[in-house]
Simulated scan of single mutants.
Amino acid sequence: MKFKIVAIIVGIILLIPGCISQNKNGENIGDTGSLNWYSYIDGINEVNKTGKPAILFFCTFNDNSESYSQSFCELVEDKLFSNGTVKSMLKKFILIKVDVYDRSQEWILSKYRFMYTPFPLVVFLNGEGEELSRLVAYGIYDPSDGSKSVERFIEVLNLTLKGEVKGEDFRFVTLSGEEKHLDEYRNRVVLLDLMSVNCPACRKEMEYLLGVKNHYGNDSSIAIISIDVAGDTVNSIKSAYGDYIGKWTFGVDKYGEASKYLLESAVPTIVIIDKLGRIFYLRAGVLSMQNLIELIESAKDE
Score class of each variant (00 low, 15 high):
residue 218 N to S: 14
residue 289 M to A: 08
residue 42 D to T: 01
residue 207 E to H: 03
residue 297 E to W: 02
residue 143 P to E: 11
residue 193 D to G: 01
residue 255 Y to W: 11
residue 103 R to E: 15
residue 85 T to E: 15
residue 167 G to W: 08
residue 219 D to C: 03
residue 81 F to R: 06
residue 269 T to Q: 08
residue 22 Q to H: 15
residue 108 I to P: 09
residue 244 Y to C: 00
residue 136 V to Q: 08
residue 191 L to M: 08
residue 292 L to K: 06
residue 157 L to K: 06
residue 18 G to N: 15
residue 291 N to T: 01
residue 25 N to Q: 13
residue 83 N to W: 04
residue 194 L to N: 10
residue 111 K to V: 00
residue 261 Y to S: 05
residue 158 N to T: 07
residue 51 G to D: 11
residue 11 G to N: 09
residue 197 V to A: 08
residue 183 D to S: 13
residue 194 L to D: 10
residue 69 S to Y: 14
residue 276 L to H: 10
residue 109 L to V: 01
residue 19 C to W: 11
residue 88 S to A: 14
residue 84 G to D: 14
residue 93 F to K: 11
residue 150 V to R: 13
residue 170 F to R: 07
residue 299 A to T: 07
residue 159 L to H: 06
residue 236 S to W: 02
residue 164 E to N: 05
residue 242 G to N: 09
residue 116 Y to T: 02
residue 297 E to V: 01
residue 189 V to P: 09
residue 32 T to F: 01
residue 299 A to E: 10
residue 254 K to P: 01
residue 96 I to F: 06
residue 96 I to H: 11
residue 105 Q to N: 15
residue 48 N to Y: 10
residue 253 D to E: 03
residue 56 L to A: 06
residue 202 C to A: 08
residue 13 I to V: 14
residue 259 S to F: 00
residue 256 G to A: 04
residue 100 V to R: 09
residue 266 A to C: 01
residue 247 K to E: 09
residue 158 N to L: 11
residue 194 L to S: 09
residue 65 S to M: 12
residue 184 E to V: 01
residue 250 F to M: 04
residue 195 M to C: 03
residue 223 A to K: 15
residue 114 F to C: 01
residue 291 N to L: 00
residue 73 C to T: 02
residue 114 F to Y: 12
residue 217 G to H: 03
residue 91 K to P: 03
residue 48 N to T: 07
residue 17 P to S: 05
residue 105 Q to F: 04
residue 76 V to P: 11
residue 94 I to T: 11
residue 202 C to S: 14
residue 233 T to K: 12
residue 159 L to T: 00
residue 167 G to P: 09
residue 230 A to Q: 14
residue 118 P to K: 02
residue 258 A to H: 05
residue 298 S to E: 15
residue 290 Q to S: 13
residue 293 I to G: 00
residue 130 E to Q: 13
residue 210 L to W: 03
residue 178 E to L: 05
residue 14 L to S: 11
